[in-house]
């Protein structure tokens, strides 16, 4: 099967979609195909549609989003699509190469960082035997990701931080301290820290952890920039430098968490 074979069918349909009525078209098209048809084209086109749908909801204005969320049919449909995709992935689990989330890395010991994990990353994440995930964005955790957590008994901590851009002074030291306490607690490890892109909010938290390891600020900034590139924020680096570590240090000493162990 050549690439064009795969591309033609589902993509042609996508191009025909009128972006304003995408949702309805997806709904009807997924119903018109008998679900018993276990064909790779069918699966693939469903995934493409799901991706399209996800893109759409994020680019929609908030008003439109609310309208869609109230529409029960749409919700059901989304669930169906999700199930299909999960099934597809379980089927493919052994054949697909592993895909870590973008910006994935080991931080220290059993602490990992990454961008927002997507369904395509689940088989990779499974190998980490995660105990918990710390999510640093305020939005609700998506259904599919939630199911993955439940299926694998992974605890979810969520500390919503607003990722404000311009005067980015808004990142809260208190929340970072709370986050650090969660991450450093051995009971929660192995733990994966993520925000949206794994750049800024995650980068600030990692910077604070590096300070607990007494790293020189130069190297901390260098690491921050590597992961935030090409969108490094000077204010984030300033935050890392000026963050008052008195409370988290006290917490660490009381709980005997320092020095952090590498293995």
């Amino acid at each position: 099967m050549s690439m064009t074979d795969l591309n033609d069918d589902p993509f042609q349909m996508d191009e025909d979609f009128d972006s304003s009525s995408n949702k309805k078209l997806i709904y009807t098209s997924s119903n018109s195909i008998p679900p018993s048809q276990n064909d790779i084209h069918y699966m693939r086109s469903n995934i493409e549609q799901l991706k399209l749908e996800n893109n759409n909801t994020t680019t929609n204005t908030t008003e439109e989003e609310e309208k869609f969320e109230e529409d029960l049919d749409d919700k059901l449909d989304l669930n169906l699509q999700n199930k299909i995709q999960l099934e597809y992935e379980k089927q493919q689990l052994d054949n697909l190469p592993l895909t870590p989330p973008e910006n994935f890395a080991l931080v220290v010991g059993k602490i990992y960082r990454s961008s927002f994990p997507q369904p395509s990353n689940f088989s990779f994440l499974n190998k980490l035997n995660l105990n918990s995930i710390l999510c640093l964005i305020p939005e609700d955790y998506p259904i599919l990701q939630n199911e993955f957590l439940q299926d694998n008994n992974i605890k979810l901590f969520q500390l919503g931080m607003s990722g404000n851009k311009e005067p980015f002074v808004k990142i809260s030291s208190e929340l970072i301290t709370e986050a650090a306490k969660i991450v450093l607690n051995p009971k929660n490890q192995p733990i994966l820290i993520h925000c949206n892109r794994g750049k800024h909010r995650t980068g600030c938290l990692i910077g604070v952890i590096r300070r607990l390891q007494n790293w020189s600020l130069t190297i901390i900034f260098d690491e921050y920039r590597k992961f935030a590139s090409p969108k490094e924020r000077p204010m984030d680096q300033q935050f890392i430098e000026l963050y008052d570590d008195a409370e988290i240090k006290k917490h660490c000493h009381e709980n005997n968490l320092l020095p952090l162990k590498w293995d």
Binding site: V108, N214, L217, T218, I219, D263
Partner: peptide
């Protein structure tokens, strides 16, 4: 007083 300086481009890859 003691600043710990990891080598340039240091990053853990896997355990140990």
């Amino acid at each position: 007083a003691l600043r710990i300086i990891p080598p340039l481009n240091f990053c853990p890859v896997e355990k140990q």
